[in-house]
């Protein structure tokens, strides 16, 4: 399994598309939107907007890892890599776990870099660092878990890109990552309660500002675990079919 993790990480380092989606684009978005939404603001209002944007775009853009995951699985399938790996002594499940873990590394690094960027450039507060680290880890597991499910279900990379955009952008809009949730219609506010992005965003902002209560942390972690499990279980069910498709 460590061979798979190492190999995937090496591959990812060569992937310029991954660098663009995970770091360059979110940084560009963050800078542009902060400059637009903070003009004319100062003091705590300005900081509140910055915290919301930095955490919101971090959460939104971690979802784009699903494109790279789908691309990697479909490519492995198309070039016969899955079949070839199946002929080695590596248990089938280790291939899946190896891929999953390697993308967890990438996402956690992405979150750390985007948060550090927010801290260095905009001096965002990181008042509850332990809570934040726990949230980072759970968000990582959740996003990559859903990515795993999507990667094994889609049959082409275009399908993967389309679904990722629905999940990432649709989820971002409905969860208040773009527009503050309070000014959204009541119906959308209700929907946001069913989306992991909303819970993660609220908890991130509170932990940054130092107002996150333990009960709220656990509530958020519970939601993130739930979606992680959902992703992993769907992936486990889809995996045999993926292997069958790969083997022709």
């Amino acid at each position: 399994m460590f061979a798979i993790i190492g190999f995937e990480l090496k591959k990812s380092l060569q992937d310029r598309g991954l660098l663009f989606w995970t770091l360059i684009l979110p940084i560009i978005f963050t800078v542009i939107f902060i400059s637009i939404f903070t003009s004319g603001l100062s003091g705590s209002d300005r900081q509140q907007v910055i915290v919301s944007i930095v955490s919101g775009y971090t959460i939104m853009f971690v979802f784009f890892i699903m494109i790279s995951m789908a691309d990697s699985f479909i490519k492995d399938q198309n070039i016969g890599m899955v079949t070839r790996i199946e002929s080695t002594p590596l248990p089938s499940l280790f291939y899946l776990l190896g891929k999953w873990i390697s993308y967890m590394y990438i996402v956690i690094i992405q979150i750390l870099i985007l948060t550090t960027f927010g801290k260095v450039i905009y001096d965002i507060p990181l008042t509850q660092p332990l809570y934040l680290i726990i949230l980072f880890i759970f968000l990582t597991v959740m996003v990559t878990g859903l990515g795993l499910a999507l990667s094994l279900l889609v049959k082409s990379i275009n399908m993967g890109i389309a679904l990722t955009q629905v999940v990432a952008l649709g989820g971002a809009v409905l969860s208040g990552l773009w527009i503050p949730i309070d000014i959204m219609p009541a119906f959308f506010q209700k929907i946001s309660n069913f989306l992991p992005q909303y819970w993660a965003h609220q908890a991130f902002q509170d932990a940054m500002s130092g107002t996150l209560q333990v009960a709220d942390l656990f509530k958020t972690l519970f939601v993130l675990i739930g979606f992680s499990l959902l992703g992993f279980i769907v992936a486990l069910f889809a995996y045999p079919n993926f292997l069958r498709r790969s083997k022709g």
Binding site: F2, A3, I4, G6, F7, K10, K11, Q14, D15, I79, G80, M81, T83, R84, I85, S87, T88, P89, L90
Partner: peptide, 25 residues
Amino acid sequence: YVPQEIALEETLSARDNLHFFGRLY
């Protein structure tokens, strides 16, 4: 097993590919 397809990671080197399969074995 030598598959019909060229099952190699093209963005990495020949040595990286051999290392990978060596580790799998």
